[in-house]
């Protein structure tokens, strides 16, 4: 009893909390507030105009489309990989786990360059693609591929430990009760990991929306066609359209805040999962 009390009585506690809050305010709250303030600096109308600008809307559309394709694919991949890793023994298992982490360890710019080397006009598949009139690099498909690549690990990394910790008793019980593989997955596995799946999806989505480096390499910056929101912010900024840049940036920030709120809610849900609905 004595130790916590004496700890509480020292100024250390207040100092610690004050410095943490100060740090957060300086490096997190202030920039976010600044973005909003700058976005609205020239009045609400400029803000609305910037957000209504066709180039901005096309960028928003491309960003959301890339996320909408990358998230479901990577969640399905993550669930399959987690299932394989947690339930079966096979050669190359640890190599697979390491490989899943690859997009996290290499710089996004390198990821983009790799795509250019494969799909670019001078790349391995360049002639083949050109012969069929297909454009990947400097076109939306390249953006989607880059987004897929950089967001690949998120769902898998969330689900592998979850599945490993659960073990396979429940699935074995279901099979012995007469369920087939499909019924076992839908009725037993998925309901028990659904919060993890959603959490992985949110992580994946926030990364997909915020990705800059890899898409920047493959995009070609064609305004209204291959610019994502982050690239659009950069373009506006480079052209000294400050309040427009900040307006679009504030849009991105709002998306980020929304996913963060979703994340926090899922976290709480996952912590109480298994409880009565």
């Amino acid at each position: 009893m004595a130790a916590p009390e004496s700890f509480a009585n020292t100024g250390a506690r207040r100092l610690l909390i004050a410095s943490v809050l100060g740090y957060l305010a300086l490096f997190l709250l202030l920039p976010v507030a600044f973005i909003l303030q700058q976005a609205l600096a020239e009045g609400w109308r400029t803000y609305a105009q910037a957000a209504r600008d066709p180039a901005a809307r096309s960028a928003l559309g491309l960003t959301l489309a890339a996320a909408a394709i990358a998230v479901p694919l990577n969640v399905v991949f993550g669930a399959a990989a987690a299932w394989a890793v947690a339930k079966f023994e096979f050669p190359g298992k640890s190599a697979l786990i390491a490989l899943i982490d690859l997009p996290l360890t290499i710089s996004p710019v390198i990821s983009g360059l790799m795509l250019v080397l494969v799909f670019g006009l001078e790349g391995w598949l360049g002639d083949w693609l050109r012969a069929r009139g297909l454009a990947v690099i400097f076109a939306p498909p390249g953006i989607v591929l880059a987004t897929l690549f950089v967001t690949l690990p998120f769902a898998a990394r969330e689900l592998i430990p979850l599945m490993a910790e659960r073990g396979k008793d429940d699935e074995e019980a279901a099979v012995l009760l007469g369920a087939d593989g499909w019924q076992t997955f839908w009725r037993v596995t998925l309901p028990e990991i659904k919060w993890g799946v959603l959490y992985g999806a949110v992580l994946c989505a926030s990364r997909a929306i915020g990705e800059f480096g890899a898409v920047s390499v493959v995009s070609g910056h064609v305004r209204g066609r291959t610019n994502t929101l982050t690239l659009h912010v950069e373009a506006l900024y480079n052209e000294y359209h400050m309040s427009a840049a900040f307006a679009v940036a504030s849009l991105l920030t709002l998306l980020a805040l929304a996913t963060m709120a979703l994340q926090a809610w899922l976290d709480r849900r996952a912590a109480t999962a298994g409880g009565p609905p």
Binding site: D169, D170, A173, G178, A179, D180, Q183, R187, P191
Partner: peptide
């Protein structure tokens, strides 16, 4: 099973009914 392997997201009733429902 040693640790029962009950389905956590189901009620007692649904746990017992599982083998009948997947038929």
């Amino acid at each position: 099973f040693q640790h029962y392997a009950l389905f956590r997201h189901m009620t007692v009733f649904e746990n017992v009914a599982f083998g009948l429902r997947v038929r």
